[in-house]
């Protein structure tokens, strides 16, 4: 039972100082030090045929002050999925950039940089990915206060109060008068 999975696990554990387990059929996970992750990924891609990078994701383990990173790779030959997991320090999150192994890792890393504040030294493409002009705490962190941010940013903006006529705000700002035909529809 699960011979292929065991073989995959032992191949990775014999090549690198990692611990791992067979999760179920077609699913194997290994836990590695953050510094060895890129070597493992390079090895499984080039030597073992795990050429398809399914995704990279992050889980905020705020209780342990750590980020858990998960790299998921898949082999079209064996049809098995390998998870390479690691922890990095949450207070100074830095991780090896792997966009030289897979180009598409660039997109995931840019997203993780914005959403969790993880730095990937040497990451190509310094421009923003999803968030524009964001200077708050990275929003996917567990301690980001969604409601507080929303109240602060959106509720108190001039022109957005419930009772205010937006046309009046515009006319005050621009110094233009509201034309007569529009006035008759005003709330007063």
């Amino acid at each position: 039972m699960l011979e292929q999975e065991q073989a995959l696990l032992s191949q990775v554990t014999s090549a690198f100082p990692v611990k791992g387990k067979v999760m179920r059929n077609r699913r194997v996970e290994v836990w590695a030090e953050s510094t060895t992750v890129s070597s493992i990924l390079m090895y499984v891609k080039n030597q073992m045929g795990y050429q398809h990078l399914n995704h990279i994701t992050c889980i905020d383990r705020i209780e342990d002050t750590k980020f858990q990173l998960v790299y998921t790779v898949f082999s079209h030959q064996t049809k098995m999925t390998l998870f390479v997991k690691t922890f990095i320090d949450r207070n100074a999150p830095v991780m090896d950039n792997i966009d030289h192994i897979w180009d598409q890792a660039n997109t995931y890393e840019r997203e993780l940089r914005e959403m969790y504040g993880i730095q990937f030294p040497g990451l190509v493409g310094a421009q923003e990915f999803i968030l524009e002009d964001w200077d708050e705490m990275p929003p996917m962190r567990r301690d980001f206060k969604t409601e507080e941010y929303s109240e602060k940013t959106f509720s108190s903006l001039p022109g957005r109060e419930n009772t205010q006529d937006v046309r009046e705000t515009i006319s005050t700002r621009s110094g233009e008068e509201i034309p007569d035909f529009a006035k008759k529809y005003s709330r007063d």
Binding site: E128, F129, I130, L131, E132, P139, M140, T146
Partner: peptide
């Protein structure tokens, strides 16, 4: 360039 439809669904 994306970002026009970000709705923070995962959050």
């Amino acid at each position: 360039h994306v970002g026009y439809l970000h709705r923070a669904f995962e959050k």
